[in-house]
């Protein structure tokens, strides 16, 4: 086991290369998830803000837009 981790004395080089590779890819995956989450919440908030304003403008509901969905 120790032999595996020491990689013949080149542990720093080998694990430095593999660690950076999979570390960066992991960071990319996490970043993609969080950016998706923030985008979804932002668009949701945008839609929620827009919906009641159209409704309270007094005009009869044109198109098929439903009223404020609570």
């Amino acid at each position: 086991m120790m032999e595996f981790f020491s990689q013949g004395g080149y542990a720093g080089y080998v694990w430095g290369a593999f660690g950076m590779t999979f570390g960066l890819l992991l960071i990319e995956v996490l970043q993609l998830r969080s950016s998706r989450k923030t985008t979804l919440t932002r668009i949701r908030r945008l839609l929620r803000l827009r919906a009641p304003r159209q409704d309270s403008a007094g005009a009869a509901p044109q198109r098929g837009t439903s009223g404020p969905t609570s």
Partner: peptide, 11 residues
Amino acid sequence: QKEYYRIIYVH
């Protein structure tokens, strides 16, 4: 090359 040749698998 010694063990460091394994970097080939990501490089």
